[in-house]
Design a protein around this nucleic acid. Structure first.
Lengths: 141, 141
DNA sequence: ACAGTTGTTTTGAATAACTCAAAACAACTG
DNA sequence: CAGTTGTTTTGAGTTATTCAAAACAACTGT
């Protein structure tokens, strides 16, 4: 964990190690969730420090930030692959989606019209399986 | 304008007509921009009313809302086609991008894994032609 | 044209999620 | 171990938006 920070050119500090720990594993966490995880280990850590740490991690390429409309930003440590997200309009659950078609299906023309594309963000909005089940159950009740 | 509202099942009110007028034509407007346009015509209109109007228009399918990370939400009246956006990381300019590949390239599997996709949102982040020109000019100065 | 109903707008306030800045402090360098 | 650079704390502030209650206006049927 510390090594990863060092490699990225970041100073190794306790809040950063704790934040990386909190983000480890699959899934997506809000800044608030990372803050709770970090403070359970390092109670004096401030929320602002967590925002700073997360920004540093994103800058360094150790984390990725996604910012779904209408929800707080989420952070994940799955970086480097061109993967996307699907978000349930009902329960706001976020799940990863691999790029299915071809290699980088979404980055299509990397330069259209003089515009230099650096990142293509794809978000699928819809209804997750659980919420579909719940709503058909409610309808038939 | 009024007919469009009526067709959509909305009551025809002055703020709604003015807001539709403010959104007419190409481009994207913030709620604040719509508010200024509306108040120049109807000075007593409140900002909250504009938010209400915009929400109603989006609900009725007469407008579309996009919510770029780090900027206020934008509204446009180009609806019904599956078009996307490119946003300059530097100047935050937003432009429309037609779906280039195939018919609905981005809606790929409309049902993956039990997840019912209702909308695929694609955003290209990068540097617009103007900002590229400006930055190379600055570099060579 | 008019009263009633339903939905809209005003008014007033509140909130979530961040962001900014200055000072105290801690990691890494040599 | 001293110095430099970058991080974290402390404290405050902001933007974009939402909520709620009351006043009001558009459409419906007569």
């Amino acid at each position: 964990m510390a090594g990863r920070l060092k490699q990225a050119g970041l100073k190794v500090t306790a809040p950063r190690i704790a934040a990386l720990g909190a983000l480890a594993g699959p899934g997506h966490r809000t800044a608030e969730a990372v803050f709770s995880a970090v403070t359970s280990e390092l109670p004096k850590t401030s929320l602002q420090a967590v925002y700073g740490v997360l920004a540093a991690l994103v800058d360094a390429g150790l984390a990725r930030k996604i910012d779904p409309a209408g929800s707080p930003a989420l952070y994940e440590t799955r970086v480097g692959d061109n993967h996307h997200h699907r978000i349930c309009l009902n329960c706001h659950a976020v799940e990863d989606v691999d790029c299915a078609v071809g290699e980088s299906p979404c980055l299509t023309p990397s330069n259209m019209d003089g515009f230099a594309v650096q990142l293509a963000e794809v978000t699928f909005w819809g209804t997750c399986a659980a919420c579909q089940a719940a709503s058909t159950a409610a309808a038939s009740a």
